[in-house]
């Protein structure tokens, strides 16, 4: 595993995460994230080929709920949270493309 994190990697990641960074921030983050990844390289030396990945600490399965309607929130309360609302809906600036 390589830890040579490049500036353009950080720029791409920032774009994916919807964050904009100044040139200075880009430099600083490249260095700081590089350090963390460097530290993570100690894992790269392990042979974990036959180890199963654990995404979750406990082995619960089939946790479900009954298909029974519960009260929804009051619309006025919901829309009161919104930065902008019109006609009972949340308003946003124009959407540039359809969902992927």
């Amino acid at each position: 595993m390589s830890s040579s994190l490049r500036r353009e990697d950080v720029a791409k990641v920032a774009q994916l995460a919807r964050l904009s960074l100044s040139d200075d921030e880009l430099d600083k983050f490249t260095e700081q994230l590089g350090q963390v990844l460097e530290h993570a390289n100690d894992m790269g030396t392990l042979n974990l080929e036959n180890v199963v990945a654990t995404a979750h600490p406990f082995g619960l399965i089939n946790v479900v709920r009954d298909d029974v309607v519960r009260p929804s929130l009051d619309r006025s309360e919901v829309l009161a949270m919104a930065p902008d609302a019109r006609d009972g809906r949340f308003a946003v600036p124009r959407i540039m493309g359809e969902a992927p």
Binding site: R18, V92, P93
Partner: peptide, 18 residues
């Protein structure tokens, strides 16, 4: 910035998110 909390306005929704 869509449903609650801070919104900094911008031309389109992606720019607003960012």
């Amino acid at each position: 910035g869509v449903r609650f909390g801070l919104r900094v306005n911008a031309e389109d929704v992606s720019a607003m998110n960012e």
